[in-house]
Amino acid sequence: MSDVTSVLKVQSRDVVVPGEVLAVGMDYLPSFGTYRSRETIRAARLGLVTVEGKVLKLIPLSGAYLPKRGDMIIAKVIDILMSGWRVDTNSPYSAVLQLKDASSGYIEKGADLTKYFALGDYVSAIITNVTSQKLVDVSMREPGARKIIGGRIIEVSTNKVPRIIGKQGSMVSLIKEATGCKITVGQNGLVWLEGHPLMENLAVETIRKIEKEGHISGMTDKIKAFLDSRLKETKHFDEEQ
């Protein structure tokens, strides 16, 4: 560092708590989840520190999902409106699915909307807009968006969703291949899976494992080994039957 008085007080990937001093001196820069008060940079929430050159930021370890444009989420229909549906997004804010965004086909005005989506149905949808007041619009006229039928839905920590998906979806496709389940991971922390009941259980168990140990490097290999050993067990079990 050019200025000897600047001191980093934490290491990259330490867990820090609100108010904790991350660095002293003007050489470091506060980014997401941190703030500067005079000479010091402090944590503005609970999280893992990352040091990128001179920039200090936090990766949240907990907290609610906040809707973001472009995210694919799994949502539940909670109300039927005049011209659309209100869906629960597993976040502080519910979203509206407008009639015109609901399907690629034409839905006539005044049609019985429950024929398309009834109360309690789940859909996968894309967030198309979020206003400053957190009014959220979702659309189903997008690739991958559909009504969810069958299978089961589990809730995971929204901060662990990137770990479950993996780089370019490597982790989730690994689970899909090993268990033969169909899996959809919503950014809002809801995961839908469908397959053989035993395989569904295994997939759920795997996802829980990733959620718990999400930050280990070489996680993909570890999960692969885990799935292989569990699959062998099930095979034996099937043969005994």
Partner: peptide, 15 residues
């Protein structure tokens, strides 16, 4: 409470 993650992260420093 979050210590597990800290330890796990320590050995991921290489990648």
């Amino acid at each position: 409470k979050y210590a597990g993650q800290e330890a796990d992260v320590a050995d991921s420093n290489t990648s």
